[in-house]
C-alpha cells in the first residue's frame, strides 16, 4: 500500500516539475509547482513527519505560491518567455546535471543505516517538535522570528511607490 502511494506521489512530483521546466507560461509554471509541493507534502507524511507535511502544504503550497501568482499577475506578460535557444547551453546544462547525479549517487553509498525498530515509533508530532524547538533550538527559533520581521519590513519598504517620483 505504502509503496503504491510512494510511486504515485513520486511520479506526479517529477512529472509536474518537468512540466514546469518545459512550459513557457508563467502561470502554468506556478500551478505545476503547486502540484509538486502538494506531492512533497504527501511524501513527508509518508516519512512519519505529519506536522512538517502540514506546514509544507500550508506555507509552501499555500502562502509562497500565492505570492508567486500575485507577482506573475502583476507583471502580466502576455507572451511567455521560452527556454534557452542556444543549444550549447542546453548540452552544457545536461552535462553538469549528469555529473551532479553521479556524484550525489556516489555520496549515498553507505550513507544510510538500516532502519532500527526503535525509530519506527518516532513520529514527528507537534508536541515533540515543539519541545525540541523551545529547548534545543530556542536561539534559531527566536532569530528566525526576527528574520521574518526583517523580510516583512524589507518587502514592504522595497516595493513602496516613492511619493516624490
Amino acid at each position: 500500500m505504502a509503496h503504491i502511494l510512494f510511486f504515485l506521489l513520486a511520479i506526479i512530483c517529477i512529472g509536474s516539475v518537468l512540466g514546469m521546466i518545459i512550459s513557457k507560461d508563467q502561470a502554468y509554471n506556478a500551478l505545476f509547482l503547486i502540484v509538486a509541493f502538494a506531492c512533497m507534502g504527501g511524501l513527508f507524511a509518508l516519512l512519519d513527519a505529519p506536522f512538517i507535511a502540514a506546514v509544507q502544504i500550508i506555507i509552501y503550497a499555500g502562502a509562497i505560491m500565492i505570492l508567486f501568482i500575485f507577482v506573475v499577475m502583476m507583471i502580466n506578460l502576455r507572451t511567455g518567455i521560452g527556454p534557452e535557444k542556444k543549444k550549447w547551453t542546453l548540452y552544457f546544462a545536461f552535462l553538469v546535471a549528469g555529473v551532479l547525479i553521479i556524484e550525489l549517487v556516489l555520496t549515498l553509498k553507505g550513507a544510510l543505516k538500516p532502519i532500527s525498530s526503535a525509530s519506527m515509533d518516532k513520529i514527528g508530532s507537534p508536541t515533540d517538535l515543539g519541545r525540541l524547538l523551545f529547548t534545543k533550538y530556542l536561539y534559531p527559533f527566536e532569530i528566525t522570528s526576527i528574520l521574518i520581521i526583517a523580510a516583512l519590513v524589507g518587502a514592504i519598504v522595497l516595493v513602496k511607490k516613492r511619493d516624490k517620483e
Partner: peptide, 13 residues
C-alpha cells in the same frame, strides 16, 4: 557556484 559545489563534492568523495 554549481561547478564549485561539484568540485568540492568530488574532492570530498
Amino acid at each position: 557556484f554549481l561547478l564549485g559545489a561539484i568540485l568540492l563534492l568530488g574532492y570530498l568523495l
